[in-house]
Structures are given as C-alpha cells and as structure tokens.
Amino acid sequence: MTPRIIDTNVNLSRWPTRRVRDDETTRLVTTLSGHGVVEAWAGSFDALLHKDLAGVNARLAHECRVQSRIRLVPFGSVNPAQPDWEEDLRRCVEEHGMPGIRLHPNYHGYPLDHPAFAQLLALAAKRDLVVTLCLQMEDERMMHPAFRVAPVNPAPLATVVAKTPGLRLLLLNSLSVIRGQALQKVIQAGDVSVDLSTREGVGGVASLLEEVALERVLFGSHAPCLYFESAILKLKESALAPAQLRAVQEQNARRLIPTAR
C-alpha cells in the first residue's frame, strides 16, 4: 500500500545560487505525489533575499492554490527585523488563509533573543499559527563563497519558547545544528517538534526516537534542496514499526494542522 505522507518541509521557486532538481513546482509536485505525499507545507526560496515579503507570500499562496494533484499548504515568511512585519503577518492570515509561517533568522539578520522575535512568536500563538523555524538552509560544504550564511544559534530558544504560552513550533533543518541535551531542553520547553530532513547516520530516525518523543518527530524532506528520496530512505533503513511510521509520516503533522484548516 502506498503510504500517506505529509511533507512539512518543501520550498517553491529557485535556490539563489544554482538550479536544483524539481525547482519547478509542477515537477516537485510530481515527485512528491509519486511517493505518496498527499500534503506538503511550502515556503518560498524567494523569502531568503527578497525584501518585499508581501509579494513573496502572495506569489507563494497563488502557486499553492493552483496545484490540485496534492494539497500544497503555503507558509508565508515574516521578518521581525523589518518595519511593519505585523502587516505581513496579518496578510498571511487574513488575505491568504495560511495556517502557519516560516522564519529564516540567519538570512534576515536577527538573533533568537531579539525582542521582536519573541513578539512575533507571541502574536503567532495568539492567531493559532504553526511557526516553522529554519535553523539552516544549506550545508556549508555546498555554499557559494560569496553566499555563506551561518546556521542559527539556537541557544536562546528554550527560554523564548517557555515564555510563549500556546506556541506550536516546528524546527526545520535543525538536527545538524542542535543535538542531545540542548535539543531535549528546547522540546521540553513547550510544544516543539522537529522534522527529520537533516538527521544523518545509520538508523538515524530510530535513534532520534530514543531521544525525542514519537509525537514530536515529523516527516520533512527539505525538497528540492535535498533529494526527496533521501527522506524516504531515512525511514526505510530505520525499520520503524507500522504505528511509528504512521505517526511520523502523517499523524503528527495532522495534530498541528487538522485537515479542515
């Protein structure tokens, strides 16, 4: 039986420094649907460098809306270091009906102890939004010499999460940046989950489930930056039980965003 998968971590548009496979939406959707993906939460590569995030988010919402093969769910970008970021957040919710947002602190130039970051999380929680926080987007070995961006420093995150009641936070591309006790501290601070896109090593997902509660691990491919098939392989070589597979592939994501939204 073909699995039902919710991919919590894909991006539309083009990576700034090179072409990657499936960087056209129709091709990406074909790849996803061919592997059993029924829903994908999509950000936009344009959000990394474009200053006009309102335009980026409007294009993202349109691109997701015109796709019918799978359900593409747009996650608009908000930069709390910019003036009028509250208006960008309002548009994401009220104009585009987005159930969540995607944040890129290292590209947008603010640390996680920035007061506006805490304000954004609080407002997102008040609006019942899922916040997806990217700790990195590209492996340092792949970076263009003129386009080197350090990963987000996650040290302040647990404190900020603990002070934000109602926050639902999903860390993307995080497992090569935060590990061990530091990761557990953040997850224990609130309703925090992780995607598996950057989990490496033999039996990586199985060993992750020994560190993190099952309900806090979600399927995410980081396609098309990474090959979608690599995320599928992570599950296969970890030999998870059927109930664990269903939870990681679909049920845990559905807890954050019910079908009706």
Rank of each mutant, 00 (worst) to 15 (best):
W15L: 09
P16R: 06
P16K: 06
P16H: 06
T17K: 11
T17V: 07
R18L: 06
R18I: 04
R18N: 01
R18Q: 13
R18H: 08
R19I: 11
V20G: 01
V20Y: 07
R21L: 08
R21C: 01
R21H: 11
D22W: 12
D22I: 00
D22G: 00
D23Q: 13
E24C: 13
T25E: 07
T26C: 10
T26Q: 12
L28P: 02
L28M: 13
V29W: 09
V29K: 11
V29M: 02
V29N: 08
T30S: 15
T31E: 15
T31L: 14
T31C: 14
S33A: 15
S33G: 05
S33P: 10
S33Y: 08
S33N: 11
S33V: 12
G34Y: 09
G34K: 10
G34F: 07
G34C: 07
H35R: 14
H35N: 15
G36N: 03
G36P: 03
V37R: 12
V37T: 14
V37S: 11
V37N: 07
V38I: 15
V38T: 15
E39W: 07
E39P: 04
A40Y: 12
A42C: 15
A42P: 01
A42V: 08
A42F: 04
G43S: 14
G43M: 06
G43Q: 09
G43C: 05
S44Q: 10
S44W: 10
S44P: 08
S44I: 05
S44E: 12
S44K: 08
F45M: 10
F45Q: 03
D46Y: 07
D46T: 09
A47G: 14
A47F: 03
A47N: 06
A47T: 04
L48N: 02
L49C: 08
H50N: 12
H50K: 15
H50E: 14
K51N: 14
K51G: 15
K51D: 15
K51V: 08
K51P: 10
K51Q: 15
D52I: 13
D52C: 06
D52Q: 13
D52W: 10
L53C: 05
L53E: 00
L53W: 02
A54C: 07
A54M: 06
A54L: 11
A54Q: 11
G55I: 00
G55Y: 00
G55C: 01
V56C: 04
N57T: 05
A58S: 13
A58M: 04
A58V: 03
R59K: 13
L60D: 05
L60V: 02
A61P: 03
A61T: 09
H62I: 09
H62D: 13
H62Q: 14
E63V: 03
E63N: 08
E63H: 02
E63Y: 00
C64Q: 04
R65A: 15
R65H: 13
R65C: 11
R65I: 01
V66N: 00
V66W: 01
V66P: 00
V66T: 13
Q67K: 00
Q67T: 10
S68P: 00
R69Y: 01
R69K: 13
